[in-house]
Amino acid sequence: MNATALRGATLHYDDLGPSTGLPVLLIHGHPFNRTLWAPQAEALTAAGYRVITPDLRGYGRSSVTPGKVFLSDFADDLAALLDHLDIGRAVVGGVSMGGQIAMEFQHRHPRRVQALVLSDTSAPAETDEGKEFRNRLADRLLAEGMDCYAGEVIDKMLAPYNVAALPDVAERVLGMMRATDPRGAAAALRGRAERPDYRDTLAAVREPVLIVVGADDVYTPVADAEAIHRLVPHATLVVIEKAGHLPGAEQPGAFNRALLDFLTTQLARHAGMEG
């Protein structure tokens, strides 16, 4: 693990695989950390890719910025991290909130995106109801901590049947949630409540896009992934069976096959067309 100071925060991150490999930046969701992507990092580095998995500010071992952290703050942090690593362009992927950060990155830094990977996420702006919910939840996490919340949402983060069927995965996901600093989680919730609409951004994307969703995701169901696919008709949509909101953790084999197939076919085809 590495750390660097940037934009008023200290970001911890893993930089794995050969330095000459195609860079793949993977962005975790709320309220997790970079280790969520461990199965993908292992598969990608074995295939020769360079994988960068950061702890977003306020999560994992990165420093906390209390108050409100916008998706644009996270996106600019990641651009600064790529600068620090002397990486011009990368495949940028994220799950849930991480997918929205990837969309924000596409909006703010489009020339740095070689391809997008959007897992279990949604593009429209937050609703009034959603804003109220996220701000109330932020208040609650600051008052109570993460433990009760983690227990309440584990069967939504994972498909309910996987909580019992995959106890090691459930424990790993619970551990990440419980270890998150409530101040960091609350700041991200308040910023995410103000998120813009990314549909125009997605409609303008010409780079390859992979959309992945768990078949039994209740937070961002298959319909949300299909809506993104309609915006980006040249994208690849993959539905992962026997998975909920975190298919990369629940069904890593199927997720990794979809990701590697995308990188070796769609991305290579796009590169050939550019050439």
Rank of each mutant, 00 (worst) to 15 (best):
2 N>H: 11
2 N>Q: 12
4 T>N: 00
4 T>A: 12
5 A>N: 13
11 L>I: 05
15 D>Y: 12
15 D>P: 13
15 D>C: 13
17 G>R: 03
18 P>F: 07
20 T>C: 09
20 T>Y: 07
21 G>W: 14
23 P>G: 00
26 L>Y: 10
32 F>R: 06
34 R>F: 01
36 L>I: 04
37 W>A: 02
38 A>H: 11
39 P>D: 00
39 P>I: 03
39 P>Y: 00
40 Q>A: 08
40 Q>P: 06
48 G>M: 05
48 G>H: 12
49 Y>E: 00
49 Y>P: 07
49 Y>A: 02
50 R>C: 04
50 R>G: 00
52 I>P: 07
52 I>S: 10
53 T>V: 14
53 T>N: 04
53 T>A: 08
56 L>K: 01
58 G>D: 00
63 S>W: 08
65 T>C: 05
68 K>G: 00
69 V>W: 06
71 L>Y: 14
74 F>S: 05
80 A>D: 02
86 D>P: 13
87 I>D: 07
91 V>N: 13
92 V>E: 03
106 Q>M: 15
107 H>C: 10
107 H>T: 10
114 Q>S: 15
114 Q>T: 15
114 Q>A: 14
119 S>N: 15
121 T>D: 14
122 S>H: 15
128 D>A: 15
130 G>D: 04
131 K>I: 13
133 F>W: 15
135 N>Q: 14
135 N>P: 07
137 L>N: 08
139 D>I: 06
141 L>Q: 12
141 L>P: 14
142 L>S: 07
143 A>L: 15
145 G>S: 02
146 M>T: 10
149 Y>N: 09
150 A>C: 12
155 D>K: 14
158 L>T: 05
160 P>N: 13
162 N>S: 10
163 V>M: 12
165 A>K: 15
169 V>D: 02
169 V>M: 09
171 E>G: 09
173 V>I: 12
175 G>T: 02
175 G>K: 09
178 R>P: 07
178 R>K: 15
179 A>C: 08
181 D>W: 12
182 P>H: 06
183 R>T: 04
186 A>E: 05
187 A>V: 06
188 A>V: 06
191 G>I: 08
191 G>S: 08
196 P>I: 02
196 P>S: 01
200 D>I: 00
201 T>C: 08
206 R>Q: 12
209 V>D: 02
212 V>P: 05
213 V>H: 03
217 D>N: 06
219 Y>P: 04
220 T>G: 02
221 P>K: 01
223 A>S: 14
223 A>I: 13
223 A>F: 08
225 A>N: 09
226 E>W: 08
228 I>N: 04
228 I>G: 06
229 H>Y: 10
231 L>C: 01
231 L>G: 04
231 L>K: 05
233 P>V: 03
233 P>N: 01
237 L>Y: 09
238 V>M: 11
244 G>P: 06
245 H>K: 05
251 Q>A: 07
252 P>R: 01
253 G>R: 01
258 A>N: 03
259 L>Y: 07
261 D>Y: 13
263 L>E: 02
264 T>C: 06
264 T>E: 10
269 R>S: 12
274 E>G: 03
274 E>K: 09
